[in-house]
């Protein structure tokens, strides 16, 4: 595998869409955008064969910056649109970018069913622990006790572990990384995109503007530095006791296995249907 140079991103960005982009200064989405584009270029995909689909929220604005077919859909439903696109044209590489609220609150049902069906899609879930675009309300991944504009006295619900959820639901590939671990992120994305079946990459990304400010976590620099402290690579994570795991999270590949995709099993139905019809 020959490495592409970082500057390849400029070949993939949409220059008729004016930069700078809409996100706040320091937002991790920009880092993810670069990482995603590098991974696509690295994989040698044809721009014409890639479709980027997103929902609503800060992450929803990501596809517009990439010079591929891009579809910015409704809140929580990006995976359903992607399902339609993929089934309509199975040869396309369909990548879905969602936020944590998008993917696990309003779109939680679609997420688990997409994983169960094992559609050949890549789902990138940008987890910033909050609803950033609408002002910092709590999301299903907001930690217990954290502050949000709708949890002024501290959040009273436990949170989802997105990666564990999608592993259980049957995704072929699940990995977690952060925008701080950007070289690892490039790798995880490359693997997920190349994977046949439903690939999930959970990307922790700081929202210093809303989540960080309300919880006094400092600027995105401090938040990214905290990722450095909290993130533990999978091989080490397995050796940690539960006390040591407190306040930390694992990064790396959580699941990677082969399962037939929906399209493959559906071809079985197609064959049987055609055989039965031929018999009359």
């Amino acid at each position: 595998m020959t490495a592409v140079h970082r500057s390849v991103v400029y070949d993939w960005l949409r220059h008729d869409k004016k930069f700078p982009h809409v996100w706040c200064p320091g937002c991790g989405l920009g880092i993810l955008l670069g990482s995603l584009v590098r991974s696509l270029a690295q994989g040698g995909y044809d721009k014409n064969q890639v479709v980027l689909v997103s929902g609503i929220g800060c992450s929803g604005r990501l596809p517009v910056y990439v010079d591929v077919g891009s579809v910015h859909t409704t809140h929580g439903r990006a995976l359903t649109f992607a399902t339609g696109i993929k089934l309509a044209k199975p040869e396309l590489k369909v990548i879905v970018v969602m936020g944590d609220g998008d993917a696990t609150a309003i779109g939680g049902n679609h997420l688990i069913h997409a994983a169960r069906r094992n559609l050949d899609l890549t789902a990138i879930i940008v987890n910033n622990l909050t609803y950033g675009m609408t002002g910092g309300q709590y999301s299903p991944t907001t930690p217990l006790g954290a502050k949000a504009t709708t949890a002024p006295y501290g959040h009273s619900e436990p949170s989802f572990d997105i990666s564990a959820l999608t592993v259980t639901a049957g995704a072929s590939f699940v990995a977690r990384s952060t925008v701080y671990h950007v070289t690892q992120l490039d790798q995880m994305l490359s693997q997920a995109i190349a994977k046949k079946g439903f690939g999930v990459v959970e990307v922790l990304s700081p929202c210093h503007t809303n989540y960080g400010r309300q919880n006094r976590l400092g600027s995105q620099v401090e938040m990214m530095k905290s990722y450095k402290k909290q993130a533990v690579r999978m091989d080490r994570w397995d050796k940690l006791g539960s006390a040591e795991r407190e306040g930390r999270f694992a990064i790396g590949v959580l699941a990677d296995h082969e399962r037939p995709t929906f399209w493959e099993t559906y071809q079985g139905s197609v064959d049987r249907a055609q055989a039965i019809r031929k018999e009359g």
């Binding site: 970082r6 400029y10 320091g26 670069g34 925008v179 070289t183």
Partner: peptide, 16 residues
Amino acid sequence: CGLCEMLCPDFAITVG
């Protein structure tokens, strides 16, 4: 190393 380029969310740095 290019880390500044990769961690720049705004594609405002290139290291050549």
